[in-house]
Structure formats: structure tokens, C-alpha cells
Design a protein around this nucleic acid. Structure first.
Length: 425
RNA sequence: GGAGAGGUGGCUGAGUGGUCGAAAGCGAACGACUCGAAAUCGUUUAAUAGGAAACUAUUCGUGGGUUCGAAUCCCACCCUCUCCGCCA
């Protein structure tokens, strides 16, 4: 959420910053609404002030004279009544304006950082780092072939249970998924993160608070009879964990790691990544999340990204990191570093983690603050996948595939998985 | 799902129609004492909107209503707790 005062007082600044995203945002309407709202607010405030003073006089008069029905008093009461009517008229107008303003402002995305590369779409993202040796042989199998050969998952049967884009992990596949979750949670919680296991269903307010609503309601699954949605990412419950709080600055930063299933409708991606583990309606993810002091989010952003990277390094998976350009940034983010893992079958890097600094954008929507020099200020929030489990599995299968059809398990994962290779039965 | 109790500041908790934005305590900040600390004493300490500030207004779960005036009375909703039922 952007600051309404900023929009009111400096609309062109707001428009300029938003336009870095490569789209035109019309602030004028909001600007005018806000000015009008302020005007009405001042009017109401002065009327209320008068009416309040009058009430006090009436109260005193009653106590002094012990008579609540003198003619003089009735005249004063009439006067009070007139104030009341006027105030309620203005308040009705204000309520309508507030609703409109809230609706419009909550549709505006965050400002892109000045450090983010300028650009319109993903083609303008900038690679900032490459790690490991990407495997570049021909005739490598895709992970869904490997998975089928080794009986790691079954997508056909899963359509009986649900529909396409759902998967059932079987045998070693399920075991590998579980091993990855435990491995990642252990690494992060040994590195100063507090582990949380949040609810998978979240209310509308929580989705609004982290930025998924109101604009992206079509991306999430909604429960029919309750104000509850299947959470698309643990970022949502983690943000809401401290909703409406003023956090003691001494305990900042708060660093959380959470495993959660994630549910996404993937509307508009028909026909893309229909095979395997890359794009599913339900997938598992280990998420990193920071609540930090507003002066420290830039360093925090580097740190959270490094923490996500550490998993790829430990698993010995080649990857690169990408600085997301202004036109490709997510709604709530001011700057994002994506980590992309090498998938040798398709000879390309695929996103496996997205590490974003949302500055005070989510904190403002969720009202999460701290005290700095006796003033309340919004904190900064950061999130990063550490990592998406399904895509990690895909990368392990493809990068670890052996000529005999087996898959080598990364050394760091062996104690969790219980074996160095996945072989045909 | 049935019955009952309750939602007040960072926290605990008093307050049932008028100087109540709210006692008291805890916590926190500053100061005094101290070589330093603890203890003690003193002062300060809710948020939001508007304003340079003085200040003004709003907020006691949420939304309505009664009243000149509502934390307090009335209605609806939400949430929490206890007991019963059901259930992993």
C-alpha cells in the first residue's frame, strides 16, 4: 500500500515512480478523491469540536440547576441536534470516499527500487551471478521421464483424484520430497531462523495484507462457505503473523522459516509446463521471511538471498541469480533477485526462488510497525523461497541422472534421504 | 452443532450516561543516588488523521441505533474462552 498522504501531496512523484513499471498509472482520480476527503475531514472535525463543547455546557448546566428540562436547555439541545444532523451528512460522504480511496490505492503496486534495472519485461532482467557447472550433454532425460522410469510420481492417476496440474508422489519420490523439506528447514533453522508451520487456509484480510488481493483474486482458490482461501505462498500467513502489531525494535530483525503447501490456480498459463513438477496447482515450499528495521532492509535483502542460495550450493545444483527489471517486478516488491536452477534437459535456467524486498509496502497494508526514536514507523518485510521443493526435486533428478538410469542424490541430502542413489526397483 | 462467559493502551486489569483517551500495576525510556550495576526514588510513556506547531478530531472487537452527550444503554455481526456433543 502506498501512502495516501504522499499521493495527495506529490502525485507526480508517485506517477513517475509507478511508471517505472512500464505501465501508465492514473493517479489523478485518487489525488482528487484524497483532496476532497481531506476537505470533508476538516469540516467534520470543526463541527464535532463545536458540538462537543456544547455537550459539555449542557452537562454542566444540568448539574448546576438540577433541572434537565428548562427552556434554555431545550434550546441548547436543539442546537446540538442540528450539529448532529450536519455531521452525519458529511460522514456519509466521507465513508463513500474512504471506501473508494481504499479500493483504488490498494490496487497500486509498490514503487520499484532505483537500483532495479529498468525494463519492460523478463527479457530485460539482468544476470548478476552464475554458480556451478551447468551440465550440457545431449540426450539427457527430462525429469518427468526420469520420474516415470523410477516410479517417483504419478500425474495420470492424480487427475482421478483432482484434475490436471496435481501430482501424487510415490515411493522414493515422496521420500525425496520429505527429505528436501527437512533438509531445508534444518539448514535455515540452524542459521538463525525460527521455524513456523502456519495454517494453509488464510482469510481475505491476510491476502490483502501481503498484496495478493484485491488484484489477484483469480490466482487463488477460494473456499465456498467461508472467508478462507488456500494460501498461494507462506508469505501470506507469515506477513499476517504480526498483523496490527508494534514490534519492539530490539527484537528486530525477526527471521522466520516456514514449510507450507502452496496453492495456485495458474490462470492464464494453459499449455505451459504441463508435464512434471514445474507448474502445479499444489506444491510445497520452504519460505524465508524477515521483519526488519526500515534502515536495514537493503543488507537484509542480500542476506536472505544468500541464505536461499546456500541451499542450492549445498545441493550442488548449478544456478544463476537474476536482478528482476522494473517491468517484471511482482506487485508488492520494490526489488527482486530470482534464483534460477539449471535444468539440463531443456538447457535453460528455471526460477526456483524469488527473493524480494517489499520495503514498507506489506507492513503498511498489514499495519506492522516499530518504534524509532519514539515515533511509530512501518517496518520492512522481505521474503524469499528457500526453496520451492518440487522444482528442486526436478533439478536433482535432471542434474543427478546417470547413464544407467539411476539418479545420484547430492551428498548433503543423503543423511535425509537415506541412500546415495535412486535406482530402478 | 447446543449452553454460558467475555473482548478496554506494548501487556495485565479497573471503569455501567457528562471534565474518561480511560485508574492501578507490569514493561519501557530518561534523570537522581552509585566507581559501576541491582534495588530505590522522581519524571515520562497509546494509535490514527489533519497541522510547521499550538492544537483539533477519531478510536475501548466491527458496524449500526438511542441521546445534546456512549467504553458504559439497545440491535446485528465477528472473534476468544469454558462446559456438553462430534472428531484426528
Amino acid at each position: 500500500m502506498l501512502d495516501q498522504k504522499l499521493i495527495r501531496e506529490n502525485p507526480s512523484f508517485v506517477e513517475d515512480n509507478l511508471s517505472l513499471r512500464g505501465k501508465v498509472y492514473d493517479i489523478d482520480f485518487i489525488h482528487k478523491l484524497s483532496l476532497k476527503r481531506k476537505e470533508i475531514d476538516i469540516e467534520i472535525s470543526s463541527l464535532q469540536s463545536k458540538s462537543k463543547k456544547l455537550s459539555k455546557i449542557i452537562g454542566q448546566e444540568i448539574r448546576n440547576t438540577n433541572n434537565a428540562n428548562s427552556q434554555e436547555l431545550n434550546e441548547l439541545k436543539d442546537k446540538g441536534n442540528k450539529y448532529k444532523i450536519k455531521v452525519s451528512e458529511f460522514e456519509e460522504k466521507k465513508r463513500i470516499l474512504d471506501k473508494q480511496l481504499q479500493d483504488e490505492i490498494s490496487k497500486l503496486p509498490n514503487f520499484p527500487s532505483k537500483d532495479a534495472p529498468l525494463g519492460e519485461n523478463e527479457n530485460n532482467n539482468i544476470q548478476i551471478k552464475e554458480w556451478g557447472d551447468p551440465l550440457k550433454k545431449d540426450n539427457l532425460k527430462a525429469h518427468w521421464e526420469i520420474g516415470e522410469n523410477l516410479n517417483l510420481f504419478d500425474s495420470v492417476k492424480s487427475t482421478k483424484i483432482s484434475k490436471s496440474r496435481f501430482i501424487t508422489l510415490t515411493g522414493n519420490g515422496a521420500r525425496l520430497e520429505r527429505a528436501l523439506v527437512n533438509f531445508m528447514l534444518d539448514v535455515h533453522s540452524n542459521n538463525g531462523y525460527l521455524e513456523l508451520m502456519p495454517p494453509a487456509l488464510v482469510n481475505s484480510e491476510s491476502l490483502q495484507g501481503s498484496g495478493q488481493l484485491p488484484k489477484f483474486s483469480k490466482e487463488s482458490f477460494k473456499c465456498a462457505n467461508d472467508d478462507l482461501w488456500l494460501s498461494p505462498t507462506a508469505e501470506v500467513p507469515l506477513t499476517a503473523f504480526h498483523k496490527n502489531e508494534i514490534i519492539d525494535p530490539k527484537i528486530l530483525p525477526l527471521k522466520y522459516v516456514a514449510y507450507s503447501p502452496c496453492f495456485r490456480r495458474e490462470a492464464g498459463s494453459y499449455g505451459r509446463d504441463t508435464k512434471g513438477l514445474i507448474r502445479l496447482h499444489q506444491f510445497n515450499k520452504v519460505e524465508l521471511y524477515w521483519f526488519c528495521h526500515p534502515n536495514k532492509s537493503l543488507e537484509a535483502h542480500k542476506e536472505i538471498t544468500e541464505d536461499a542460495e546456500s541451499i542450492l550450493k549445498k545441493l550442488n545444483l548449478p544456478y544463476r541469480s537474476v536482478d528482476i527489471c522494473t517491468g517484471d517486478l511482482g506487485f508488492s516488491s520494490s526489488r527482486t533477485f530470482d534464483l534460477e536452477v539449471w535444468l539440463p534437459s531443456s538447457k535453460c535456467y528455471r526460477e526456483i526462488s524469488s527473493c524480494s524486498n517489499c520495503l514498507d509496502f506489506q507492513a503498511r497494508r498489514s499495519s506492522i510497525r516499530t518504534k524509532i526514536d519514539k515515533k511509530t514507523s512501518f517496518i520492512h518485510t522481505l521474503n524469499g523461497s528457500g526453496l520451492a521443493i518440487g522444482r528442486t526435486m526436478a533439478a536433482i533428478l535432471e542434474n543427478g541422472q546417470q547413464p544407467d538410469g539411476s539418479v545420484k542424490i547430492p551428498d548433503a541430502l543423503v543423511p535425509y534421504f537415506g541412500s546415495s542413489f535412486i535406482k530402478t526397483a
